[in-house]
């Protein structure tokens, strides 16, 4: 994985800032949508072995709600917005008063509402990045899956699979007030996208 070893501290910081801008805007959008404060943690930029990635959201078998976007344009990649079931229910109750359904199943209406929330957040995440880098990027239509974290995140790792056994991801956790984690944003740029990001931002590539 020479690609990442050559990245160095400075470039990782650049990527962290990318995550910061994107997630910051998405958090603001979420906060406006819910009309309550939403905090976020400092983004983490890491090269993680495939095995460890699902551990970030509770392990490969943890059932999560994943809203997935393929990022298209000049900087292709994968964007995941991952919730656990309970925070997702809470989110729905704040937003549209959908809390008659107490068990952890989700009806079509709820799934549709969650996809739309994901869509708004992904839109603000990517458009702020596009403004910042002046590179075109746009999300596809959201795809929602309620399934094992390992199985869904796996989908973002295929391109990295050809190159090694680890992937670079930018992840940011959201918190609502001081409560437990609401959701996690994962941006996994395709391996070839990094040089474009760095060129666009004037970071020298040796």
């Amino acid at each position: 994985m020479q690609l990442y070893e050559s990245l160095g501290e400075f470039k990782l910081d650049v990527l962290k800032e990318i995550g910061n801008i994107g997630a910051g805007n998405a958090a603001t959008a979420l906060s406006r949508l819910l009309n309550r404060p939403v905090d976020m943690q400092v983004p983490k930029v890491r090269v993680l072995p495939f095995e460890c990635i699902a551990d970030e959201v509770g392990g490969p078998e943890q059932v999560v709600i994943a809203i997935y976007f393929r990022v298209e344009g000049e900087v292709p990649g994968h964007l995941f917005f991952i919730f656990e079931q309970e925070p997702a229910k809470r989110l729905l109750s704040y937003l549209v008063n959908m809390n008659d359904n107490k068990d952890l199943d989700f009806c079509d209406m709820e799934i549709s509402a969650l996809s739309e929330i994901g869509n708004i957040l992904a839109g603000s995440y990517l458009s702020s990045l596009a403004d910042f880098t002046k590179l075109a990027m746009s999300p596809t239509v959201p795809q929602l899956a309620i399934d094992m974290a390992g199985a869904v995140l796996n989908y973002g790792l295929i391109q990295y699979g050809e190159m090694g056994d680890s992937a670079l991801l930018i992840d940011t956790k959201f918190l609502e007030g001081c409560e437990e984690i609401q959701g996690t944003f994962f941006l996994i740029p395709d391996p070839d996208s990094f040089s474009k990001i760095f060129t666009a931002l004037g970071v020298p590539i040796e």
């Binding site: 699902a54 392990g59 490969p60 078998e61 399934d147 094992m148 974290a149 390992g150 199985a151 869904v152 995140l153 796996n154 989908y155 295929i158």
Partner: peptide, 17 residues
């Protein structure tokens, strides 16, 4: 991958794999 003769073998979170 792994091989064994007793107990069991397990893998979690298969998606497209």
């Amino acid at each position: 991958l792994n091989v064994c003769r007793e107990g069991s073998l397990r893998t979690t979170g298969l998606g497209s794999c």
